[in-house]
C-alpha cells in the first residue's frame, strides 16, 4: 500500500514543469527572482517552493557535465523531522501509514522559530522551510489530497520526460532497478539513493556530485562593478 516517488534524474531536462505544477496545485505565490548566474531559480527551497530543480555543472575528463536534480522531501520511512517535532508539538508532523507520506500539519504554526530551525536541522536532506508570515513549517506533502483521490502528485502528472514517477513503493523500486540498468550504460557510476530508507528514491548519474549550496554568484564582482547599496537580496513578496 505504501507509495513512493522514483525520480530518474538521468531523464530530467530541467524544464521545471514539476516545480511550477507544484506551486500551481498548492496555490503558492511567486518569488521575486533575479539573475544570479545560474538557471537555478529560485536559488533554494523556500516556503513558496516545495520543489526546486537544482543545477550542477562540472568538468570531467575535459567534458562538461550538466546535471539536474528536482529536489523535494524524501518522505523518510523513519522521519527524523517527526521525531524532532514531537518533542515540541504533538501532531505537528504526521506520517500517513497508508502512503508513507510525511506531512507538516497546521500545528507546525505552534512551533517556535527555534524549534522550526531544530526540525530543519534534523532533516538529513535540508528540506523544511518556515513560512515567516504564517509561522508554519512547510514542505512537499506528496499531494496527499490528490493521492487519496487516486491521482498522481502534481509534479509527477506534469513531467513530460518520465523523470518523475509515482506509484506503489514495490513497483517504483522495481522500476528503479530497470532504469538503473539502463542509466548505467551511459553513466557507469549511476546509483539509486537511499532506496531502503525513503519514499522518494532518486536515480543519480553520479552519486558523488554535490549540488552544493544555493547558487549566489556575485554579478557585481563578476562584472567588476561596485555593488550598489540599493540592490540587496530580494525578500519574499
Amino acid at each position: 500500500m505504501a507509495k513512493a516517488f522514483l525520480i530518474d534524474t538521468s531523464r530530467c531536462t530541467a524544464c521545471r514543469g514539476c516545480q511550477v505544477a507544484c506551486k500551481e496545485w498548492h496555490g503558492l505565490p511567486a518569488n521575486r527572482t533575479r539573475q544570479r548566474g545560474s538557471h537555478q531559480n529560485p536559488p533554494d527551497l523556500n516556503a513558496y517552493n516545495y520543489k526546486v530543480v537544482r543545477f550542477h555543472e562540472d568538468l570531467k575528463g575535459g567534458n562538461i557535465r550538466w546535471f539536474f536534480f528536482p529536489d523535494q522531501c524524501r518522505h523518510c520511512v523513519d522521519p527524523p523531522c517527526k521525531a524532532e517535532a514531537e518533542g515540541y508539538v504533538e501532531g505537528a508532523v504526521v506520517r500517513d501509514e497508508a502512503t508513507g507520506a510525511v506531512v507538516f500539519t497546521l500545528l507546525t504554526a505552534k512551533l517556535s522559530p527555534q524549534a522550526c530551525e531544530a526540525v530543519r536541522s534534523a532533516c538529513p536532506y535540508d528540506i523544511p522551510r518556515r513560512d515567516e508570515k504564517t509561522g508554519r513549517l512547510t514542505k512537499c506533502d506528496m499531494c496527499i489530497d490528490r493521492v487519496a483521490a487516486g491521482m498522481a502528485p502534481a509534479c509527477v502528472k506534469a513531467c513530460p520526460t518520465g523523470a518523475m514517477n509515482f506509484g506503489e513503493r514495490s513497483e517504483m523500486l522495481k522500476l528503479g532497478e530497470r532504469r538503473l540498468a539502463q542509466a548505467k550504460k551511459v553513466y557507469p557510476e549511476a546509483a539509486l539513493v537511499d532506496a531502503d530508507t525513503v519514499h522518494t528514491v532518486f536515480l543519480v548519474p553520479d552519486p558523488r556530485v554535490d549540488f552544493g549550496p544555493p547558487p549566489g554568484i556575485d554579478l557585481h564582482a563578476f562584472l567588476g562593478e561596485p555593488r550598489s547599496a540599493s540592490i540587496s537580496e530580494p525578500s519574499l513578496r
Binding site: 504526521v94 506531512v103 500539519t105 489530497d145 490528490r146 483521490a149
Partner: peptide
C-alpha cells in the same frame, strides 16, 4: 469518493484531517 467517503477506499486520513483532505 464523494459518495462513500475516503475511509472506505482504505485510506486512513485521520492524522491528516488538520491538513484538509478535500480535493
Amino acid at each position: 469518493i464523494a459518495c462513500f467517503g475516503l475511509a472506505q477506499l482504505g485510506f486512513d486520513l485521520e492524522p491528516l484531517r488538520a491538513y484538509g483532505a478535500r480535493l
